[in-house]
Structures are given as structure tokens and as C-alpha cells.
Design a protein around this nucleic acid. Sequence first.
DNA 1: CGGTTTGTGTCAATGCTTTAACACAAACCG
DNA 2: CGGTTTGTGTTAAAGCATTGACACAAACCG
Lengths: 123, 123
Amino acid sequence: MSALVVVDPDDPTPPFEQVRRQLADLIAVGRLAAGDRVPPLRQLAGDLGLAVGTVARAYRELEAAGLLESRRGGGTRVTRSARPVTDDRRTRIDELAASYVARARALGADDRVVGEAVQRLLG
Amino acid sequence: MSALVVVDPDDPTPPFEQVRRQLADLIAVGRLAAGDRVPPLRQLAGDLGLAVGTVARAYRELEAAGLLESRRGGGTRVTRSARPVTDDRRTRIDELAASYVARARALGADDRVVGEAVQRLLG
DNA sequence: CGGTTTGTGTCAATGCTTTAACACAAACCG
DNA sequence: CGGTTTGTGTTAAAGCATTGACACAAACCG
């Protein structure tokens, strides 16, 4: 009975962000495929012990990112096709990359290792 | 000029928690060895653009966890009993890389873009 | 058609985090 | 010793996340 998503009360990360990240990861990894339905707001909120608005925010941000599509009465589903990379997204990706490189270097990794760790995941 | 720690302003995770996690990682991985000194509160706060109290909280929680020891006037150092988990540095870097790739993909980037963003930073 | 499901929106109240400025205490160092 | 460094603690103000309750809108289904 592994729940789709879990919220860690000891993690200071805001619950809406925990949910958002986990769903984004599930989609990125393919565990949630295009067209798959995500739990209704009230159901997921009830399961996690969160307010409806909190889960709604996670869905809303994922929809803004092009990962989910919501329809009143129709539920929320994973988007069929991924959006093209816009300029905004490009700069955001650069920021994520810079953060990763900085943190990996801080752990003592040399640049070769830093690059390989990513390439290994990209095939 | 590799920064010891970095804070991501776009990450809803509270800054004190970002700092706390990264320092815990550095210690767990052995990049910060037992007895090593951590930057003075005011210095790290200045570098990161945070208030002194914010960094102080990160240090305080790490001390409560037994990872750091603070002395007024004497600075803050890694506890002797805090031992690095042997060679899970590689694992930790892989986790960081996986997180970056997942987040970048979630933004709609294809794998080529994800890889290039990193390579651009590594020269 | 009509009832149900589901997402959206509002609102005030509450709590947590951060900030800035300041005072204080203890260890360091010349 | 005396000045400096450094960690600790306080305060008030501001911002943000969450909650719970409620109303509304649109899609679904029998």
C-alpha cells in the first residue's frame, strides 16, 4: 500500500512543495505516464492530512509548468505532450545546473565526476 | 573560489534548512572532517546574504544533532565523534545529479539540453 | 434532465521564518 | 591585562504557508 506521495512533517520544506516535487519526479521518471490521472484534490488532501488548498497549489504549479492538466469535474491528468523549451525555462535550467555543479564541487568532486554523474542518467 | 554552501532563492525550502542540509552532507561525506572549523556566523551570513540568526539556527540544529560544537569566541567546529559515512560521497553526488536531471526534465527540457547546461559550466 | 464529482476561488486566523539591530558572554590573541 | 572575535539571545516587524470553511463552476454519469 505504498502511497503515491508522502509528506514528512519533520521536513521544514512546505508541504505543497514536497507534493509538487514528488509528483514532478514521478512524471519525469515515467512512473506517472502521459494521460494518467492523479488523485482528486480532496482525496489526496485527506490521505496526506493536508488542506485542499495546499494540494491545489501543488497541482496548480505543476499545471503552470506544463506537467498536469486540470478540468473541473474531470479530474487532473498528466499532460500528453511536453512543451517546447522556452527562454524562461532555459534560464531556469541553467540555474538548476549551476546549483548542482556548485553543490557537487562542494562535496569534493572534480569536474569529470560531476559531468559523468549527469551523463550516466541521460544515456 | 568555491563556495562552501549555496542557497537557492527559488527553492521554497527555508534557507536555514538549505544550509543545515548542505553542511550535514559535507560532514557525512568527509569534506568537512572532525575538528575542521566552519565559517564564523557573520562571515557565512554575509556571503550568503542571510541574517546572522538564520545561519545561527542551522549551526544550532547541527549542534543538537551532535555534528557541530560551538564555543563563544572559539568558533564552531565539526565534532570528533561525527564520522563520515565511508565513501558514500559517490552516492551523494549521484543523488544530486538525479535531483537536477529530474527537475530539469520536469521543466520540459530534453536530455540534450539538460546535459549541455552542465557541460557549459565545466569548461 | 438532475445529482455528483471535481477543480477553483475567497476569506480570516494562525503559525513559522526571516530580517535587522542591538546587547551580552565567553574564548581568543597580542 | 585589554581589545577583538565569535557565539548567543532578544525584540518587533514583515512576509509566506497553511488551515478550515464556504461558495461557485464545470465536467461527469445514471
